[in-house]
Amino acid sequence: MNDGLIDQRVLAAARVELGGNFVRILGYFKEDGIKSVRGIEAAMRDQNAATMVLPAHTLKGESRQFGAETLADLAEGIEVIARKCVETRDVPTEALEHVARLRPTFEATLAMLDRDTNPLAVRRPTGFGKRPVAL
């Protein structure tokens, strides 16, 4: 069970497309994601919408690459609010709820990706014709 955090089809396609580079690129996603989450949180504390846009945009795009749709949608919501605030010269208080959910969602997503991509994970069959899932 992955609670809908990861679209397994997108993750499988990324694995095929990236081939031998998959693990390395996934590592970059984790590193960049940590920086993006920190940047978004700092921008929220500073009430600075302009500095919130780029890390939210980056997190959104990189999350989609690995099928982390819930995280991508959350980052996109933050980005949209931040862009609107930049245009209206307002503070991003509307993004607070999204930002509060960001770190727990990011951490849960990383845990799910680690579980789903760990070659040493014990897998159990889900039934005839179905892909095994990690325990």
Rank of each mutant, 00 (worst) to 15 (best):
M1F: 09
N2L: 04
D3I: 12
D3W: 03
G4E: 11
L5K: 01
I6G: 05
D7C: 10
Q8G: 12
Q8S: 14
L11W: 01
L11E: 01
A12L: 09
A12T: 02
A13Y: 05
A14N: 04
R15C: 07
V16P: 00
E17M: 06
E17W: 00
E17L: 03
L18T: 02
G19V: 08
G19P: 09
N21Y: 10
F22Y: 15
F22H: 11
V23H: 12
V23Q: 12
R24C: 10
R24E: 15
I25P: 08
L26N: 08
G27V: 10
F29K: 04
D32L: 08
D32T: 09
K35T: 15
K35L: 12
S36P: 11
S36H: 07
S36F: 04
R38P: 04
R38D: 15
R38T: 12
E41S: 10
A42I: 07
A42K: 13
M44F: 06
R45Q: 14
Q47A: 14
N48L: 07
A49K: 13
M52W: 02
L54H: 07
L54P: 01
A56D: 01
H57G: 07
H57D: 09
E62G: 14
S63R: 08
R64N: 10
R64T: 05
F66C: 00
F66H: 01
G67R: 00
T70W: 03
L71V: 07
A72C: 07
D73G: 14
G77K: 04
G77W: 02
G77P: 07
E79H: 02
V80A: 14
V80G: 03
V80R: 08
C85P: 13
T88F: 12
T88P: 01
V91R: 12
P92Y: 15
P92S: 14
T93S: 11
A95E: 06
A95Y: 10
V99T: 01
V99E: 11
A100W: 02
A100E: 15
L102Y: 10
R103H: 06
R103K: 10
F106W: 11
F106Y: 03
A108Y: 03
A108D: 08
A108T: 09
A108K: 10
T109I: 11
T109R: 01
T109Y: 00
L110H: 06
L110N: 05
A111T: 12
A111R: 09
M112K: 14
M112D: 05
R115E: 11
R115T: 15
T117D: 03
P119T: 03
P119H: 00
L120A: 13
L120V: 01
A121W: 02
A121P: 00
V122F: 04
R123I: 04
P125E: 15
G127A: 06
G129Y: 09
K130P: 05
P132R: 07
A134C: 08
